[in-house]
Nucleic acid binder design. Structure first.
Lengths: 352, 352
DNA sequence: TGCGATTTCTAAAACGTTTTAGAAGTGTGC
DNA sequence: GCACACTTCTAAAACGTTTTAGAAATCGCA
């Protein structure tokens, strides 16, 4: 049963100074190779493990990177998070940095938590997810000159900070052009009310693609409800589906909404994809389990998270001066929920 | 823009010693009330925030609790994790403790990561999830006398450590008795091969309930495949469903497996719940989205995690001598995937 | 007045590390 | 034999906090 020992103990055991032991373990050239070897051996023998606090004190770094969990509603705690966290962890551990997770408890805003984390010096850098269009966290960190990487970007930024993002605009352009090619002319979008940047991006992609089709027959119907208000979304979807001229295809801003569309449509007697095509975004596990499988976009969260970690570490270590950024186009996952637009009249829907 | 200042600076500004300032901020009685007030005011004015490293060094505590993420496969990164982490965070933040997440990278076992975390002193205690029947992590921590709480328990323990668990045994007893009451006599179970404790528990519950029914007509069919081998599970399920005397109800050890059963059954032309009842365990989001909704058990992960945090803190602070434990019975969530056993002959299945 | 008790504060040590400035020892070239 | 450079090591300071032992001042009381 080995106990942790200190530098001083290792030094005493070898009749060396702590400075020598410290430098030997650090691999410095001004310590004789033979001495380095002896020190390394004794350190192992004594079960020496450097004490973080001591190291932190002198380096001024905590060796931690922080992530503030968004805890808006139970739904936010989705599979995205797990993927993201593991990816992040993998990227960090390679550099000997650890990940700390801060959660906002009742009555605390995410910003409060972030401030505390930054001010207490518990983290050397932070990762931000779910960026809003006018994000106060971003402002705070920029003003503070605190290293951070945002997973998402502010719409009107002048590249004043580092970010990674998914090209939702491009994805939704792809979705529309695919649907158009399949004969769909009236496309619905179930969106959210919150002014998140990803929403803006995707909606804009859809609208621009619709405009560029150059076909006057192309129509877009957009409905929105608050992010977690399932009942409101359900009502909106029903409204859309029971309208006289309902869309032949509906896109969900996120998979959750697309899955809701599928359920509602089926409940109303519509067959998917025969009567209605549905496309989502995120590729959550449930998308694969749905019947039929939900066609959606995958943003390779795990890899993106790992990349974020690497980017942040470069920022913390001051290797890079300017802000870094990276934009990736998500992969289109074609499953069974979309198909050609229905040829003839709309099937009658069951009233409920 | 306030900069962080130190105790020494606050002391200098008030012409006091650092010791006095430290004690004043700590609320000690041997500092005059008036002085305490002045110190508090000046500290606020100067934007003083205690430095963690300094504090850690003298207290010997890091103020962190660790969680080693299981990264066996992408499926492990399920919604359970997100729920668990946020719950944990909420429980910890109330006590001023932070959560650190350690991930095993390629070539590292979970045990390696745990050892490093414990030895480096980065955490004052750890939370363990997914306990195996003969868990080496548990052994290591007990031997080391390191504070920890396990989410799950070892089968044959003499209560030698602290745990929280879900009574899977009781849940599966409930499942069987409900199915029995609905006329089911032949029940299938799709399980995993890994010797995890929760598997043992649930299987045992099912078997004991079957035995106690005292009805010779009751039969159990159990199939198993490795945890992440989807193809193997699929094959097992198909085998079970195409057998001459297939079960009228199938229970999935976890929702994922139950959902797989539903998909395979539908693909084979069986209607749920008319021809086959299905029950899962976990209440993952996909369970609610399935058609019909999957009947399952909910273990209130979020609340359990918060409880774990509180338990662990009590352990770290040494308030409790003996190990603590808590066992909760999961809630039965009845959705549409189960119903009365089919009356007459089995419907013919489509060969695929 | 003197003495002990009480209140209020402080000096100094301790925690474990890294780094800086320089000491001691050993060659090297003239 | 001396100056110089190079190699190898070390003493001491610094990081910011908490705690311990005790100093200084004030007060009550005989």
């Amino acid at each position: 049963m080995r106990r942790r020992s200190t530098l001083k103990e290792v030094a005493a055991a070898l009749d060396l100074s702590v400075a020598t032991v410290s430098r030997a373990l650090g691999g410095y050239e001004d310590i004789a190779a033979e001495t380095r070897r002896r020190v390394a051996e004794k350190a192992r023998e004594l079960g020496y493990v450097p004490n973080m606090a001591g190291r932190m004190l002198v380096s001024g770094r905590s060796g931690f990177v922080g992530l503030v969990l968004p805890v808006r509603g139970p739904d936010f705690v989705d599979s995205f998070l797990g993927e993201f966290v593991t990816g992040l962890g993998e990227g960090l551990v390679a550099k000997g940095v650890d990940l700390m997770i801060a959660t906002a408890s009742a009555g605390q805003s995410e910003l409060d938590v972030l401030k505390h984390l930054v001010q207490s010096g518990r983290a050397d850098g932070v990762v931000l997810t779910r960026i809003a269009e006018d994000d106060e966290r971003v402002k705070f960190l920029i003003e503070r000159r605190f290293p951070f990487v945002a997973h998402g970007r502010i719409a009107d930024d002048g590249a004043s900070y580092s970010w990674l993002d998914t090209d939702g605009r491009q994805a939704f352009r792809t979705a529309l052009s695919r649907l158009y090619a399949l004969g769909h002319r009236h496309v619905g979008l179930v969106s959210i009310e919150e002014r998140m940047n990803f929403r803006h991006d995707r909606e804009e992609g859809l609208e621009s693609a619709a405009a560029e089709a150059g076909d006057p027959a192309v129509r877009l119907s957009i409905v929105r409800a608050p992010r977690f208000d399932e009942a409101a979304h359900r009502a909106q979807i029903r409204g859309m589906l029971s309208a006289e001229d309902r869309p032949t295809a509906i896109i969900g801003l996120i998979d959750e909404l697309a899955l809701m569309v599928m359920r509602e449509a089926e409940a109303m007697g519509l067959a998917i994809p025969r009567d209605l095509s549905v496309i989502g975004f995120d590729n959550v596990p449930a998308a694969a389990f749905a019947t039929p499988g939900l066609t959606t976009f995958d943003q390779a969260t795990h890899e993106r998270a790992r990349e974020s970690a690497e980017m942040l570490i470069r920022l913390i270590e001051g290797e890079e001066k300017g802000p870094l950024s990276s934009l990736k186009v998500p992969r289109f996952i074609e499953r069974g929920s979309h198909g050609p637009a229905p040829r003839h009249a709309r099937p009658r829907i069951r009233q409920i």
